[in-house]
Design a binder for these strands. Sequence first.
DNA 1: CGCCTTATTGATGATTCTCAAGCAAGGTGG
DNA 2: CCACCTTGCTTGAGAATCATCAATAAGGCG
Lengths: 255, 255
Amino acid sequence: MSDMPSCQFESRPRRIVIGSSGVQADFCATCAVRPTSVCNVIAQADMARLAEAAVETIIPPGRGFIEEGAPATDFFNITSGTAKLFKALPDGRRQITGFAAPGHFLGLAVSDSYAFGAEAVDTVRACRFSREKMAELLDDFPRLERRLLEEASNELVAAQNQMLLLGRKTARERVASFLLDQMRAGMPLDQNGQRGSLHLPMTRGDIADYLGLTIETVSRTLSWMRSQGMIDVGKGYAITIRAAGRLDTLAAGNS
Amino acid sequence: MSDMPSCQFESRPRRIVIGSSGVQADFCATCAVRPTSVCNVIAQADMARLAEAAVETIIPPGRGFIEEGAPATDFFNITSGTAKLFKALPDGRRQITGFAAPGHFLGLAVSDSYAFGAEAVDTVRACRFSREKMAELLDDFPRLERRLLEEASNELVAAQNQMLLLGRKTARERVASFLLDQMRAGMPLDQNGQRGSLHLPMTRGDIADYLGLTIETVSRTLSWMRSQGMIDVGKGYAITIRAAGRLDTLAAGNS
DNA sequence: CGCCTTATTGATGATTCTCAAGCAAGGTGG
DNA sequence: CCACCTTGCTTGAGAATCATCAATAAGGCG
């Protein structure tokens, strides 16, 4: 029982797969997430500075790359894939506080240790910045600070929505909210490129830990929604939204 | 039933009691919360600028001063009293996302409308800044931006803790966590100035809406803790912590 | 003093969790 | 190529925590 948590929480060494120290000069210029990430406040002319500070990092599925409570040495900017951010209780209960999609900036911690853990859901690519490099960038590019404040404010709004969900919504409302959020977040379409068809990279267990439910309740709720004709549950991780309006009514609590 | 929400959510006109437009020049210099608030990054010499931008505002108990969804016109810095911040569902369910104590900065919203509502718990005094004045201050005092980022990061950490509480903790663990948080937050001691004796300004209903429980469950849990000798429940809003260690064990989930 | 709000406590019930079994898919090794 | 194992999902039965409904008591305030 005493070693259960370490087993459940990715006890494998959290070594990070590191690319070169600093990337090519045109790396940031051609970055796919630049338009939506915090990097976009750094001008074309200064992009070499940015690229010099960044270390491209590839994290395989299931690998943890931020450990809750560990010294906060690095910041990450997700460029592809999805990561889960979570907090855990000593007995193994876990709460996923958010999923970090491409463009998401990670590591905003005032204290010198991470307040949450992070683990790759699928293969994650991220730009890693050391605390020192980040401090230099912040000193040299004041606009970056304002951009980070904007980012943090957005996360706060998301966190408040999640608190409302966790504290006051029923299981059905939670799952409906989740599906709509995923749809709106414009997550990658499935292989068929079908409209309204989501590819959820995370498992039912992840969804349960995100929504404060159990795997069984998530599964049952999805089955119920399917029986109501609201969604189609495809093979793998595909879900098709059939009645977004009814899901919306559910998610808002009008049911 | 249709008018229940408006009744439940402070339907009285949300007029704000406004002091003078701008305060005396020495107002900020003698401010009790200056050491812990964001204002402390503005130097002695520039304090007149700060005082000129601030409007002292007094909000009576129960009065709402931020309406969820309304245009975000002002920022607030609490100087005394406690405010509750909340989000609500159309049918009246409510989640309090946090209590704002003296020193707390309110209104960090990137969008042009507030993402949450705010209401005074007891009598609240706050410095109010218009959006325009705030933008000027941010332009003129870059350190303020960094300080606000720090503030936002702290709130994010608190929000993540609250998500863990709401998603994964039992009723007893939630109440224990709440009591310890209130104790650590160094809330004002009660009239006797007794150590470990908390004066909680909020009602059981507020606590319930904060912890994602019902009034009855909060009351029952406090009674249970009293029966276990962990706390004393005094008259009014006084609670005395008798066994902080056992509460800590409970709050951490080791029970 | 009467009314209203708040808190406490009890009885009952419902949503969700726990425990359990079965199934499908994918990987591995003989 | 197929048995075997592992992982993840689904579904069922029963249990438990917490919510709901209800009654009473205790303050605060006109």
